[in-house]
């Protein structure tokens, strides 16, 4: 890849008069030694899997093995159809879809890691609901995924994308930044605006710890995906409205690395701290493992 940070990404796009998504297609093809059609085809199949996961999670009652969670996507979807959600229909749909994909994931169903499985609901939640609303083609959505991928590539190489290394900010935080930037571009914003959306979004999740109850990708991961989809749309709107990230997005990514590196091990996906070690969290873990071993 010819870029290692977001500033270089903007400069390349401006110089070559392409979107972030278009640039990433050609960069990926060059990196992998494949044709642009081939890499687009692979991403298209991934988008198909994302849409299937949304449908599956909304249409059927997902039941993770733990029995702790499940059915939240349907709950929100039914609530949305029956009444007037405080969020408004659009954001509430994105939230329901994000929950749906996360529940499919917790049930050992098939998903696309974006950038991880713990955060796999956010991009499909934003993308599928926005596609329905704006009538975008699959081709456009796939370009959007390349755009999200370019942003994630920079975050992953300058910071981290796993909860065990950098906490939840690295997973859910990164996914929100990726979805926000891609949404700006899908809506016709400039690469510069897209990158501002990334910085705005990331600042909102700095410091978020990874503290899954019983070590499962369920509590609080599933609802954080629901929140994440809504936050990504908020960040995209701020950037499209002209709000800039005063601290440049590349510097925000560096802060994520700093904060994550200083995060104690108990808050990095070990289930040794945070929500996992609350009285209820401990009780759940005990019951679960007794059940498993019993």
């Amino acid at each position: 890849m010819r870029f290692t940070n977001l500033e270089q990404l903007i400069q390349l796009c401006e110089k070559e008069q392409v979107t972030i998504g278009q640039l990433m297609v050609t960069e990926q093809a060059a990196e992998a030694g494949r044709s642009t059609q081939e890499v687009i085809q692979q991403m298209t199949s991934y988008y198909g899997i994302m849409k299937e996961a949304v449908l599956k999670g909304i249409d059927s009652e997902m039941q993770p093995r733990s029995g702790l969670t499940g059915g939240d996507a349907r709950r929100v979807h039914t609530y949305l159809q029956q009444g007037m959600p405080s969020l408004g229909e659009v954001a509430c749909t994105a939230m329901a879809y994000a929950l749906a994909v996360s529940e499919v994931n917790a049930s050992m169903g098939r998903i696309i890691a974006t950038p991880t499985a713990g955060s796999c609901g956010i991009i499909p939640g934003v993308f599928v609901s926005s596609q329905e609303r704006f009538g975008w083609s699959d081709e456009q959505m796939v370009q959007g995924l390349f755009s999200a991928g370019a942003i994630g590539y920079v975050i992953a190489n300058n910071s981290f994308v796993s909860g065990a290394e950098g906490g939840c900010q690295a997973e859910v935080g990164s996914a929100i930044g990726m979805a926000a930037g891609a949404l700006v571009e899908l809506r016709g914003g400039t690469p510069e605006q897209a990158v501002h959306a990334v910085g705005l979004a990331l600042k909102n999740t700095l410091g978020l710890i990874c503290d899954p109850v019983a070590g499962l990708v369920e509590i609080p991961c599933i609802v954080r995906n629901g929140f994440g989809a809504v936050t990504a749309m908020a960040a995209a709107d701020m950037a499209l409205a002209g709000i800039k990230s005063v601290i440049p997005s590349d510097e925000v990514i560096d802060v994520m690395l700093e904060v994550g590196s200083a995060m104690p091990e108990k808050h990095r996906e070990t289930a040794l701290g945070g929500l996992a070690q609350t009285p209820t969290g401990k009780r759940i873990m005990k019951e679960l493992y007794e059940k498993e071993e019993g």
Partner: peptide, 15 residues
């Protein structure tokens, strides 16, 4: 890019 968007996988955790 497919190490960021991807892999296609069975849940619950990419790592």
């Amino acid at each position: 890019v497919f190490s960021i968007i991807g892999p296609s996988m069975v849940g619950p955790s990419s790592s």
